[in-house]
């Protein structure tokens, strides 16, 4: 099992060409969030909108560490990949677009058919900005 948080905090802040400042600023906050097991899983669960019980949290935290320990082997490749660009896809396709022409789509009824709650032909959702 990997020693927890052997990952150095400062050097992991993102220093990429995009979004450097924003990421770095949030980073210092999230490092605290991840500073111990309980808050780490709690914070992830919040970000991912998951309900996780305390028992689940303990198990997930342990399994997260197991998985992180395994994938840390990628550090072995650091020298080999330092000059490589990251690949987020392998198709080589770029900017596939089409004319912006209207065409038939789902009817309102069809689109709403699987919704648990509707009102006046619209999806009904819980309040987002109020607390009740």
């Amino acid at each position: 099992m990997v020693k927890k948080h052997e990952i150095s905090k400062s050097k992991d802040l993102i220093i990429s060409s995009t979004g450097t400042t924003a990421r770095s600023e949030i980073s210092s906050a999230s490092v605290t969030y991840f500073s111990d097991d309980k808050t780490r899983i709690k914070h992830i669960a919040e970000l991912a909108a998951l309900d996780i019980t305390q028992d689940e949290g303990v198990k997930l935290s342990q399994q997260l560490d197991e998985t992180l320990a395994y994938i840390n082997n990628l550090k072995d490749l650091d020298n080999l990949v330092s000059q490589l660009e990251p690949s987020s896809q392998i198709t080589g396709l770029e900017n596939i677009s089409r004319e912006d022409e209207p065409s038939p789509s789902l009817s309102q009824d069809e689109a709403l058919k699987n919704a648990k709650a509707t009102q006046n032909g619209l999806f009904k959702v819980k309040g987002v900005l109020n607390n009740d």
Partner: peptide
């Protein structure tokens, strides 16, 4: 849940470079 947890972690700020970006380079 297990997969969402790791995925959220690896994409979260402060860890993106450590995990996702490193993996994307190794993918190349």
């Amino acid at each position: 849940k297990r997969r969402i947890v790791l995925g959220t972690y690896s994409l979260s700020s402060g860890y993106y470079n450590q995990y996702y970006n490193r993996a994307a380079k190794a993918r190349s």
